[in-house]
C-alpha cells in the first residue's frame, strides 16, 4: 500500500521510515513524502492511481492540510476507478472545530499529534490488508 505523508517538518520522513522499518522492509507499506500541500498535489498528479492513503498535517506554510483535502476531494470526486485516496489528518491543534471541518471535507480520520504510532501502525496494517485483499 502506498502512503503519502505530507508534513512541513523534514524529520517526519526519518521518523516514519524508522517507525515502519519492518513494514517497509516487508513490503507491506510504502511511503512517499511531501513537505507542503503543493508538493503533495504534484506528487498525486504524477502518481495518481498509486497512492491509497494520504497522511497530512494541517498546519503548513502555504497550502494547509485542509485546503489539500479540499483539492483532493475536488479532483478525485467519484468512487469509480481509480479509487480516490483516503486522507487522514494529523494535527497538533486538536480542537473540535478543525476536526469537524476535516470530517466535513471528507477526511477519513483525524489524528492528533503527538502521533500514537502503535495505533497508527494497526490502522495502516488493517487498511493494507483490506487494500491487498482484492488484488
Amino acid at each position: 500500500m502506498n502512503i503519502l505523508v505530507v508534513d512541513d517538518e523534514l524529520d517526519v520522513r526519518a521518523l516514519f521510515e524508522q517507525r515502519f522499518r519492518r513494514e517497509i522492509r516487508g513490503g507491506q507499506l510504502r511511503f512517499a513524502f511531501a513537505h507542503s500541500g503543493e508538493e503533495a498535489l504534484d506528487y498525486l498528479h504524477q502518481h495518481a492511481s498509486e497512492v491509497v492513503l494520504i497522511l497530512s498535517d494541517i498546519n503548513m506554510p502555504g497550502m494547509s492540510g485542509l485546503e489539500l483535502l479540499g483539492r483532493i476531494r475536488q479532483e478525485y470526486p467519484a468512487p469509480p476507478p481509480p479509487a480516490p485516496p483516503q486522507v487522514m489528518m494529523l494535527t497538533a491543534y486538536a480542537d473540535e472545530d478543525s476536526r469537524r471541518q476535516a470530517l466535513e471535507l471528507g477526511a477519513s480520520d483525524f489524528l492528533t499529534k503527538p502521533v500514537d504510532f502503535v495505533a497508527l501502525k494497526q490502522k495502516l496494517l488493517q487498511l493494507a490488508a483490506n487494500d491487498d485483499a482484492p488484488s
Binding site: 517538518e9 524529520d11 526519518a14 521518523l15 524508522q18 517507525r19 498546519n59 497538533a92 491543534y93 499529534k113 503527538p114 502521533v115 504510532f117
Partner: peptide, 21 residues
C-alpha cells in the same frame, strides 16, 4: 506552544524509535 510541541514530539519519537532499534 506549537513550536515547542513539535521538537518535543520528535525528541520522544526518536527516543522511542531508538529503543526499538
Amino acid at each position: 506552544a506549537h513550536e515547542i510541541q513539535n521538537p518535543l514530539n520528535f525528541v520522544t519519537n526518536f527516543a522511542d524509535v531508538s529503543t526499538e532499534l
